[in-house]
């Protein structure tokens, strides 16, 4: 904002940001410290951050013993990966057609996309559940993935991105003899990476976190996603063993945080370059 920032202003700004950051980080700090505490530590000294007896190993062991961590994380990766893959696969050609091809129903489809943008899975959960039940597909990856393969949000996002692409690029590709599908595969997709990374975070965060739909269609541990597994663990362990709970929480939170830290620069770039900025 201010180009001529006086030192005092900078100090205030830095202090404000640090204070906010501390509030954001507080849960993580407590999570890590509690994961290393014994039951008695937890009950006596809530505010001491450094555990009196280092109990990390025991808590982690307990978490790994009680929760099939590997299965949970694997399920999470498979489900999120499949959802993301199919979403992109469907959304890119759709968005391309709506952004760059002219056909009679284009405007109507645009309205439908706008409508679809706000109808969440929760609204259609009941009929979907009944349908999966009839097809005996409950407790399967299909049930976890299928409802999300068409993401209206993805179409909307790619649409914005493609609109900004120069038409001349496509004209050139057509003159070079490419088919419409060839254009999508060889011109659009390689250029859509910023949008894809940005969408990846939106999609993965949403589905990695989703508890609602897995709770409905999955009742077996074998197909449980991380949130569901964590819920089972809590239910089974009568909520008060916070040491083990925090250890489990830490393990389950870590992969996505790590992935984000690696991708965050491209993510911000992606958001900036897609239409989200308006």
């Amino acid at each position: 904002m201010s180009n001529t920032a006086i030192p005092a202003g900078r100090i205030i700004r830095f202090a404000l940001l640090s204070l906010g950051a501390l509030m954001i980080l507080a849960p993580y700090i407590f999570m890590i410290s509690t994961a290393g505490k014994t039951q008695s530590d937890i009950f006596t000294a809530a505010l001491s951050l450094v555990p009196q007896h280092f109990y990390f190993a025991e808590n982690f062991a307990k978490a790994f013993a009680k929760v099939p961590m590997a299965t949970l994380l694997w399920n999470g990766v498979v489900v999120c990966g499949l959802i993301f893959f199919f979403q992109v696969l469907v959304a890119i050609p759709c968005a391309y057609a709506m952004a760059k091809l002219k056909f009679p129903a284009a405007r109507l489809m645009m309205v439908l996309v706008m409508l679809g943008l706000l109808v969440p899975i929760h609204a259609t959960a009941l009929p979907l559940y009944v349908a999966f039940d009839r097809m005996s597909l409950l407790n399967s990856y299909t049930a976890l993935v299928a409802p999300f393969t068409i993401s209206v949000f993805a179409i909307f996002m790619f649409l914005q991105f493609f609109r900004a692409m120069p038409d001349d690029l496509l004209h050139a590709a057509r003159l070079d003899g490419m088919s419409e599908l060839g254009i999508v595969a060889r011109v659009i997709v390689p250029n859509a990476w910023p949008a894809v990374t940005a969408f990846a975070i939106f999609s993965v965060v949403a589905h990695w976190n989703d508890l609602y739909w897995p709770l409905i269609v999955v009742s077996k541990q074998a197909y449980a996603t991380p949130p569901l597994g964590l819920m089972y663990f809590r239910a089974a362990e009568a909520g008060d063993d916070y040491g083990a709970l925090m250890a489990a929480t830490l393990i389950i939170t870590l992969p996505l945080v790590a992935a984000f830290l690696l991708a965050q620069k491209r993510f911000v770039e992606g958001i900036t370059m897609t239409g989200l900025k308006g």
């Binding site: 990695w208 991380p226 949130p227 964590l230 819920m231 925090m246 996505l256 992935a259 984000f260």
Partner: peptide, 21 residues
């Protein structure tokens, strides 16, 4: 990065932390 951390964290997991807090 710090401010974005909660978005990248599993909210179900962090809910447990909040319950403790």
């Amino acid at each position: 990065t710090v401010y974005f951390l909660p978005v990248a964290s599993l909210i179900v997991a962090m809910a447990t932390v909040w319950q403790y807090i």
